[in-house]
């Protein structure tokens, strides 16, 4: 077992954002977190990458409570691409990727040859080597997202946490990014809005609604018309992808002929 959330609840100013959430992400598994806006996906992920402390419950990494580790220690195991990545300073791509090496150093310290190789490898895997000396503020959305993934890879994590990584990306970049997550071999916890992409990417899906886990399992078991209707308030037609065999949802606009 790699990562486990054990009865995690998060309360902020009296509101319960996540309630008694328990799930495990097996080693090498890609687990998708889906649910409507405000269902607690991001809050749950924040607890995993240490931006938030669970009010009760614990996030366990190989049985160790993350809050028992320093931020730096857990950053050596868990890397994240958060949703808000706005920065005002025009760092170069190479500088941003190198930040992934930060948790592996005590204090300051210059990059070692080993660090440099890891950064180069991360940039090669995300196909951004040619952008190394470009400023990040001049990049397109797809390029920027790849830079952040490269930073996370340079962190050499065991678990990758991605909070809606396909936001603002066109369909090609969405597919490229999720293909990478699918095949990179890392344990990954990914919040996604697009249920079809989630079904194609993830080994299992966990469905959140109002901060509570309502279903978890392989996409084919979870994405039933009844559950989608109950959680998202729309009734889809579920078909099987003719080539890959994963379930895909077809939607109908309201007012159209809906069987």
């Amino acid at each position: 077992m790699a990562l486990a959330l054990d009865g995690v609840s998060v309360e902020v100013t009296g509101a319960t954002l996540v309630r008694e959430l328990s799930l495990t992400v097996e080693s090498g598994e890609v687990l998708g977190l889906v649910g409507p806006n405000g269902s607690g996906k991001s809050t749950a992920l924040r607890c995993v990458y240490r931006a938030l402390r669970p009010t009760t419950g614990a996030v366990l990494l190989d049985g160790t409570d993350l809050t028992a580790l320093s931020l730096r220690d857990s950053a050596r195991s868990v890397a994240a691409v958060a949703q808000d990545n706005h920065t005002e300073l025009d760092f170069t791509v190479a500088e941003v990727v190198a930040l992934g090496r930060f948790p592996h150093h005590q204090g300051g310290g210059a990059l070692s040859e080993h660090d440099r190789l890891l950064c180069q490898e991360a940039m090669r895997r995300t196909d951004i080597t040619h952008l190394a000396d470009r400023g990040v503020l001049s990049l397109s959305g797809g390029e920027r997202q790849r830079v952040l993934i490269a930073r996370a890879l340079a962190q050499q994590p065991r678990v990758l946490v991605l909070d809606e990584p396909t936001n603002h990306l066109d369909v090609r970049h969405q597919l490229e990014l999720l293909s990478f997550v699918r095949h990179c071999g890392l344990t990954a916890l990914v919040a996604l809005h697009d249920l079809n992409l989630a079904a194609a990417t993830c080994d299992r899906l966990a469905v959140l609604c109002g901060g509570t886990l309502v279903a978890i399992g392989p996409p084919a078991d979870v994405l039933t018309p009844e559950l989608v209707q109950r959680v998202f308030g729309v009734r889809p037609t579920v078909v099987t992808h003719p080539h890959t065999g994963v379930p895909q949802l077809l939607y109908t606009l309201t007012g159209e002929n809906n069987p």
Binding site: R50, A51, A75, V78, T87, F102
Partner: peptide
Amino acid sequence: MGDETAASLG
């Protein structure tokens, strides 16, 4: 990089 990313980097 922002507070959240900073936390994730230690």
